[in-house]
Design a protein around this nucleic acid. Structure first.
Lengths: 137, 137
DNA sequence: ATATCACCTCAAGTACACTTGAGGTAAAGT
DNA sequence: ACTTTACCTCAAGTGTACTTGAGGTGATAT
């Protein structure tokens, strides 16, 4: 099975080498094999890294990730695991709703200022903020 | 027109009083009126706070917000303003796409572990990870 | 009268997630 | 032989965004 050096993983995941070592320090990436002192990453490590990246991108903290993997590695904690995942699902849904709401406001502002610039260039009357209704695209 | 004390604004926006003062310190909320030493927030201040909250929730840093308001308060910087907003629009779109992708992965994990728990309780065969295809809901 | 409340300032402290730097090893290229 | 490259450890430092604490003021309740 394919293995990777730390530099290769760093490039594959667009994460600094220092971050990979840091994740190991705090116990997120464990069981990384060694060739002497040098780290060797296998597919299992990368799968774990995938999870770390996904969870981090959705706003999970290091501490919660530590919990998650503790639960994952321990059959007894299945309830805690499901609870944690349910909570995180909800959080992601909330994030999505919020992001979509905010997106509209930002687009509104963007269109407004674009049109101001346009109007200035063409010496036309200035647009009015009130005319910029919140739309879906 | 309606005005608000700092505590009222704090409650209305679910932001600590200290944060409101901090935003003022770093120049995001300026022109806040005073009754003696006490801050009095008017609608204009709240509009600005709305923008701050919206931008912050979409991942804009304090430094970028400072730029944004500098551009807003300065007619010359219209190009910079439009550029900043365009950039931020794109960032929000990227966030949305990423969030939707990650959402699927997290839901997949959630379903998988929920079903494991279910199966354990009912002494049924364990589900297989491969069977949990990525879906849209 | 006094005490409690709601506010104030300003400097220092905190939490989180890394990043940097000093000093070192071990193998490969010239 | 030597130097460049690719790693390593471990402690200390950094950036961001606040938060806390000490010490104080001025109006309202008892």
């Amino acid at each position: 099975m394919a293995t990777y050096s730390i530099t290769q993983v760093s490039k594959k995941y667009h994460l600094p080498v220092s971050t990979l070592r840091y994740y190991e320090d705090v116990g997120l990436l464990c069981d990384v094999d060694r060739n002497g002192k040098n780290r060797i990453y296998d597919q299992e490590n990368l799968d774990r890294l995938d999870a770390i990246v996904c969870f981090k991108e959705t706003g999970m903290s290091i501490a919660e990730l530590q919990n998650f993997f503790r639960f994952q590695d321990n059959d007894d904690d299945l309830d805690d695991m499901v609870a944690l995942l349910a909570k995180h699902c909800k959080r992601v849904d909330d994030q999505l709703a919020l992001l979509e709401k905010n997106r509209k406001h930002i687009q509104r502002k963007f269109k407004y200022y674009s049109d101001i610039r346009q109007a200035k260039q063409n010496h036309q009357p200035m647009p009015k903020w009130e005319d910029y209704v919140l739309t879906d695209s």
